[in-house]
Design a binder for these strands. Structure first.
Lengths: 234, 234
DNA sequence: GGTGGAATTTGCGCTAGATCAAACACGCGG
DNA sequence: CCGCGTGTTTGATCTAGCGCAAATTCCACC
């Protein structure tokens, strides 16, 4: 196994407040895995043998319903933990995690979690803080779904993606991984058709520029206006 | 202050695996509070000075949006923790908690959380397990909102309430606290009008019996059929 | 350079459910 | 027992956005 360096994880907010020596001990027990685009990191209902840290790439976390619907729960960015089912008392993964692009992840066996949690209190505190913010996110999603219309939800989703993985390009801010209309639909609880119509309309107004699996937000602030329901309509 | 007895909390799943002496120490630091119906236990954005355990009654956890919408996040039943913002690294409460009926709660100052967590590992494990299942719940809600229609969501909400707080009466299973059409609408992301129409229809079919702030589920299994989208329609 | 498949666009009709509006019942306090 | 307020029912419209269908564009690979 290639030697893993603590520099891989030093500076990540999850590992904040942990001594260098401890970082070494932590990294020492991980193995690093390369995951090709469209391959899955872990799968819904599968035994949760490991938990993961995304080092590079982007991962889409998706839940499938029995009746064949797919709902995207979140996108994971580099530096984030995923698959921490064990820390929450679960024995199986609650969702599928699939690589949106080629990715590099670190994996630790789940049985290390209790040890880590007691040996490195700030690690566990940071992790639960993150869990808290995900709970928060999920509640926000519920609220959005209950009170906002599709147009606002899609605008919000784009803004969230921009904030998370925006990359400056000359035309504006590019969402830095391939994302289809269908993907956006699964994030917002609508259909690819409606997303397509919205993007077309926004493109006409100069808010965004989009192509096949590619979205560039040209005028974020005007998109914010739409997200708040103060768009041209209404 | 009346002496609080460890029997108040022994047997609750959150305190599972904790020695009697420790239970005494835990209870010893709590104060018990009576909360009248419609009064709030804690409020959104307020400083999270305490966390709570509901001993008796039912509490509705509601989030308010800036534009005046209210979304019910969950109902708390006796034995459940609430307001554990501190455990998740938050300093303010994320929602309002209002008593659906007269309630009795135990309250601990938030600053005790870190001590409790390290002194009673199983307490913290149990708590995070509960957080995990709430995260799970929230995701389920998002999925429901994205993929199911109102009829199914309302049926699901009733079934959840029945499971949580159902009380057998001669006509069927009563939801054991006052709940209005409006309340159900806020749980399911719809309007009181639609809820009223659904309940009327179900009453005609003999699935439920309902009155002012009162719902009795007569035939749970048939309601399950509706919840799964295999109702008479479609 | 062509070609097949996937992603996208766009039109059209339709319906679930919101919105608006009004009448109604229940239960409480006087 | 009466009235009043809050919760509920029910009707009548109106529309956002879904479902279906067909045309089109783009890309990857041969």
């Amino acid at each position: 196994m290639a030697s893993l360096d603590r520099s891989l994880i030093a500076g990540l907010s999850v590992f904040e407040g942990i001594a260098a020596a401890d970082l070494d001990r932590i990294v020492g027990q991980a193995r690093s895995i390369r995951v090709a685009r469209d391959q899955s990191v872990f799968e819904q209902e599968q035994e949760a043998h490991s938990f993961f840290l995304l080092l590079d790439g982007h991962v889409r976390v998706v839940k499938s319903t029995p009746d064949g619907h797919e709902v995207t729960v979140r996108y994971i960015s580099p530096g984030e933990l995923m698959g921490i089912a064990g820390a929450l008392g679960r024995t199986t993964y609650p969702a599928n995690a699939v690589a949106a692009v080629d990715c590099v992840v670190l994996a630790w066996p789940s049985h290390l979690w209790p040890t880590f949690a007691t040996s490195f209190p700030s690690f566990s505190a940071n992790t639960y803080k993150m869990v808290g913010s995900r709970l928060q996110d999920a509640h926000m999603r519920v609220i959005e779904m209950s009170t906002e219309q599709v147009e606002q939800r899609v605008a919000n989703a784009l803004l969230k993606l921009v904030k998370q993985s925006g990359k400056k390009v000359e035309e504006g801010i590019l969402i830095d991984f391939p994302i289809s209309r269908q993907d956006i639909a699964e994030m917002t609880g609508t259909t690819l058709h409606t997303v397509s119509r919205l993007l077309s309309a926004w493109e006409d107004q100069g808010l965004v520029k989009s192509g096949r699996q590619r979205v560039v937000v040209v005028e974020p602030h005007r998109l914010v206006v739409v997200a708040e329901g103060r768009g041209s309509k209404r």
